[in-house]
Design a protein around this nucleic acid. Structure first.
Lengths: 235, 235
DNA sequence: TATGTTCCTGACCATTTGGTCAACATGTGA
DNA sequence: TCACATGTTGACCAAATGGTCAGGAACATA
């Protein structure tokens, strides 16, 4: 179904489109199955069926169940790392934390299956991610923590334990992907839409900033929208 | 559990201690295995080995893998329900929220395997807990939400969306059980001790109360214990 | 001791598991 | 056209899966 542009010379590649398409189908299907059942609980057969391919074909492309799983984890960690940008003491605390929460929330929203895959891996004791957690990620946390502490010293925020703060942001955002079934069950919704996500992001930002006494460096608050929760209230 | 305790005929008491001991061993082992690998990924053989019993014995006591799993879920929901006490508008917001956070934190700390079992169930789409989530739990949340709203109307706290607030507390406390591997990897600790738990509880309480502008009604300060905040701040 | 109930477990079964492989299909460049 | 690489997949395998069952062990009451 791929229409070759006759005018442009086709690249000397082989049947590359098929490969890409099949790999994509497998990765997407596998992410869902692994997220739902964990590494052990997922079967190659189930992944193959979800990808609408024979089991042999899945193994042909991915080599083995473990290789497929590791590849998915790596892809998710890459997405994760993409939002781990660097910050400095000179930055504005309110801005940084706001951006942090918003990006993390978007990651969970844009890649819910990936988020759940990651969660399942950690839940099972992180057998494949030990090194990452103890190395790269730990160093990143420590770097941020130092900045938070310096902000606190300069009176730009309360002297809270920065590691607990980072965990608070991670957990409260991650929740909406990992515990989606619970969230939907309790709210009675079929799915969370963009408006819900914005409202939740605003709520979390508000509580974290206010709760940690974060000062803005008198830059204008970059609010385009103000989805405040409405309560019949009159004073 | 269904012991007819017939007063007429022989009370069929027997070697009851053995039964209790074996069942306990199985439940403990199974909770760990299910938490680690999810329902599908856990094997009866693995549970049997962890309980140091033959596989047949596990099936003899529990009937089936599914019955065992359901029983564990029920046990965890019972623990969970134990901290879902009722509240009213007349209560003190600060007290209620503080107690809520503390109890939830203790639940995660006292039953980490159970917490992870629950998390794995939700992560997999809550196939066995749909009813509970849509029914009992949802009603409880709505009840609390109404109280929070009334508090907000009376100016005792900010008018935040109470459901997001409840999720915030659930997620941020649950995190320390479910993502233990990540927490330990990043902090470099072997385990979180009581002091850590108290510090985290204090941090979360502080951020939530301050972040939601929760007012205390100047009732008497906490009853038995006073978890000292390691952070002192401006009034 | 006799009798009945519960406890215990190795042997077994049908099914599913991850993975291999040979055979064939479909291209691709000469 | 040929030769060769890549794509595709059903058949197959040893191991593990959840579960059954027969039959013996242990125990309690009579």
């Amino acid at each position: 179904m791929t229409q070759p542009t006759s005018a442009v010379k086709t690249p000397p590649r082989r049947n590359d489109a098929t490969r890409a398409r099949n790999e994509q189908a497998i990765l997407t299907a596998a992410e869902r199955i692994f997220a739902r059942h964990g590494y052990r609980g997922a079967s190659v057969q189930a992944i193959a069926e979800a990808a609408e391919l024979p089991k042999s074909n899945v193994l042909y492309y991915m080599g083995s169940k473990q290789a497929l799983y590791v590849r998915l984890l790596a892809r998710m960690m890459k997405r994760w790392n993409a939002l781990l940008d660097d910050i400095s003491v000179e930055d504005d605390p309110a801005e940084v934390l706001t951006a942090f929460i918003e990006r993390k929330m978007q990651l969970s929203r844009r890649h819910p299956e990936g988020s759940r895959l990651f969660a399942a891996e950690i839940l099972g004791g992180a057998p494949f991610l030990q090194e990452y957690l103890h190395g790269e990620l730990r160093e990143w946390v420590e770097g941020r923590a130092r900045v938070f502490e310096q902000w606190a010293e300069r009176g730009l925020m309360d002297p809270v334990n920065p590691v607990w703060l980072i965990f608070l942001i991670w957990s409260s955002t991650q929740h909406y992907a990992d515990f989606e079934a619970q969230v939907l069950g309790i709210t009675g919704k079929d799915a969370l839409d963009d408006a819900d996500t914005e409202e939740i992001t605003a709520f979390l930002t508000r509580v974290v900033l206010k709760g940690c006494g974060v000062q803005s460096r008198q830059k204008a608050p970059p609010e385009r929208k103000m989805p405040s929760y409405s309560v019949r209230n009159d004073a």
